[in-house]
Structure formats: structure tokens, C-alpha cells
Design a binder for these strands. Sequence first.
RNA 1: GGAGAGGUGGCAGAGCGGUCGAAUGCGGCGGUCUUGAAAACCGCUUUACCCUCACGGGUAACGGGGGUUCGAAUCCCUCCCUCUCCGCCA
Length: 424
Amino acid sequence: MLELPFLRANRDEAEQRLTKRNIDAKGLLDRALELDEVRRNTQTELDGQLAELNGLSRTIGDLMKAGNKDEAEAAKGRTTALKTTSQELRERLEATEKALHDHLCTIPNAPNALVPVGRTPEENVTVMQEGEIPVLHANAKPHWELGEEYGFLHMDLGVKITGAGFPVYSGQGAKLQRALIAFFLDRATAAGYREIIPPHMVNAASAFATGQLPDKEGQMYHATVDDLYLIPTAEVPITNLYRDEIVDADKLPVKLVGYTPCFRREAGSYGAHVRGLNRVHQFDKVEIVRVEKPEDSYAALNEMVEHVKGLLRDLELPYRQLLLCGGDMGFASALTYDMEVYSAAQQRWLEVSSISNFETFQSNRLKLRYRGDDKKPRLAHTLNGSALALARIVAALLENNQTLEGIRIPKALQPYTGFAMITK
RNA sequence: GGAGAGGUGGCAGAGCGGUCGAAUGCGGCGGUCUUGAAAACCGCUUUACCCUCACGGGUAACGGGGGUUCGAAUCCCUCCCUCUCCGCCA
């Protein structure tokens, strides 16, 4: 949620930035500021009435104490009208506040100045690309066929016990998952991130604070009996650790990492391009989360990107970094880099990481603040990024490293897998 | 699942209808004293919103919501949460 004081003070800048999202920025801002003005006027009026009422109550108390019953009763009579009008004003204020809040919830974050203009993923900017595109032998297969052939990935068993899009890993496939998770966690903790094991279900307040509700309600699995949501990413529980907190400036930056399974309904996305592990309802992911002072947040974002690049290099995967255009960015983000790896048998790029700076968009909902040098609470910046998301990394590893003898495991991973090759 | 207790400021813990945003203690910040430190003493120490260029002023908040009253942290209703005991159980 954008900050109202920012919108009031920097209307033009906000409009200019929001326009990159190809939305009616002017209309949205006009409405927000109009509601804000009604709200402020109403509150001023209401506060005045309440002050008067409080004064009368105090007077009545004094009169009662002095035993002056008649005058006290007379004063009581004068409160009636004030109570009626203040009640009306209160209702109007609450209605306006709710309308304003609901309206603000519909406005996405304002893109950073660096965000390119564009509507579709084709207009994202490739920042850099690294690593060699592997040349596969003539008989190379996509990962789902490899999984079947080697017997470590079973989409059909997932269908039996749960439903489509819930993969079952076994043997060396299962070990590979665990190895990747451990590898990613070790690298993150070595880089100064504190490991967290959070709950895998969250309440509605948490889902709202990080922006999943109300914007992406249909994307989450909802356990209705207990009104809890299965997390779509560790970002939700981990960032919410800091909901309603005021942290001292010397506690910043906060750097956290967590592994969790991620659950996504992915409603309506079926077809050939989502075969195998390309898009599943449950996958494993190691997520890094940071809380930063505003002046440090973009340096932190770059640091996160470098961290992810290091992982991809060590996994020997060809990858590229994209700067998302205004039309392709997530609702809550001010700037997002996507990292994609090349999956050689499918001959396509797969998104394996999304690294975003939310600036104060999340912290405003979270009420996550820090106390600066002036001792005043200010909203902090929040960031997060996948480091990394497993299913697609696995897909690319399997496809790119297939040989006639078996599937080669990158050197950096071998201490974790305990084997150098997946064999039949 | 059954029975009971409780939710107050960073923490502990009073208040149970009238200057209570809230005693007291601890913690934290500043000061006096000291070569320095400790101790002691003094003062300060929640947040959001509104008005104001500012000084300053106002409103709200004692788990959430509603009610009674001129007035509620205090009384009533309701929901949520936490803890203890019993049962079940990894």
C-alpha cells in the first residue's frame, strides 16, 4: 500500500511512476486524494466535537463532586445534541477511512525510475547473460522423460495421491532436492543471513500484510475450517515476523533466509508449457528476506542479485538477468529482477528467481518501522528474492547435464548429494 | 475434546465508574557526583491521526467489536487469543 503522505506531497512523481504500469494513474490518485481530504475534514470536525464533549463531562464531574445536582443535570442536557452529531461524524469518518483504505489497496506500488516502460514480458530488459548454452547429444530428453527413465521423478504418483502438479521424488531425485536445499541454505547463512524455519500456514492478517490478500486470493490454498492459508512462498511468514514492529536502526539490516515448500493453485494454467516441473502446485524454495533503511535498499537489492548469480554459476547453469518492465512487475514491487536459467532439452528459459525491492509498500501494510537518528519511527524498506526455487533448477540441471552415461551433478553440489552422477 | 484462569505501556505488575495514557519496579536515555566506572540522586522515556510555517494544541488507543453512562482500563454482551489441569497423540 502506498503511503498517503507521500502521495499528498509528491502527487506528480507518483502519477508519473504509476503510469509505467499502464493503468489510469491520474484517476486512481485523484480518487485517493479526494477521499483523503474528506477524511481529514471530517476528523477535524469530529475532534472538535469530542473535545467539547470531554469538556462538558469534566464539568459535570466537578459539579457532582461539589454537590451541585441541578447544574449538573442542566449540563447533561447540553451533551445530547453533541452526542448525536459526533456519532454521525464518527460514522462518516469510519466509512471514509474504509473507502480510502480499500481504494489504496487497489493501487499497485509505484515503479522505480529505473523500471522500463512496457506491457508484456517481451519488453523486459535483459541486463546480462552468462554461461554457455550446452549442446546436447542427439537423444536428449526433457526432464520429465528423464525422471521416468531413471526412476527418480514420478508425476503420475503425485496425481494418484494428491492431484496434478504435485511431484513425487524418489531415490537420487529426492536426495538431489535435499542437497540443493542444504546447499542454498549454507550459502545464504555464509553470506550473513539468519536461518528461519517458519510455519507453512499463515493467517489472513499475514497474507494481507505481504500483499497476497486481497490481490491474489485465488492463488493460495485456503484451509477454510481454520481460516488459514498455505504459504505460496516463505516471504509471507518470514516478512511477517516483523509485522507491527519498531526496530532500532542499529538492528538493520535484517537478513533472513528460510527454506519452505511453496503451495500455489496456479488456477487456469495448464497445457504443454507447464509440463513436468515447469509449473507445479508444490515446490521447494529457499528465500532470502531483508529489512533495510531506505537509503540502503537498492544496494541491498544488488547484493541479493550477486548472491543469486553466485549460486547459478556454481551450479554451472547458463542464466540471464532480466529487469522487469512496468507491465510485468508484481503488484507490490517497486523494482524486480528475474533470473532465468536455460533448460537445454526444452530449449527455453525458466524463471528460477525473482528479486524485488518493495520499498515501503509492504512495510506500510506490515507497520514495520525503524527508529532513525531523529528517534522518529519511519517505515523500513523490505526486499526478498528466491535463492533459489528448486523445481525449475532441477529441471535445468537434469536436462543440461544429461550424458549417455547418466546425469552429471555439478561439482559444488557433489558434497551434498554424495554422488557425482545420477544413474539408472 | 472436557474443566478452569487470564489478556493493561519494552518487560514485570497495580488500578476495577470521574484530570488514568494509566501507580510502582525493572530496563532504556540524559544529567549531577567521580580521574574513570559502579552506587546514589534528579529528570525524561508509547503510538497513530487531525489543526498549525512554527511554538503549541486537539482526538483516539488498557486483546477485537458492540452496549450502558454526562463520563469506562474499570459495568454488561460478544468474538478472538494465551496459559494451567485432564483426555488423546508425533
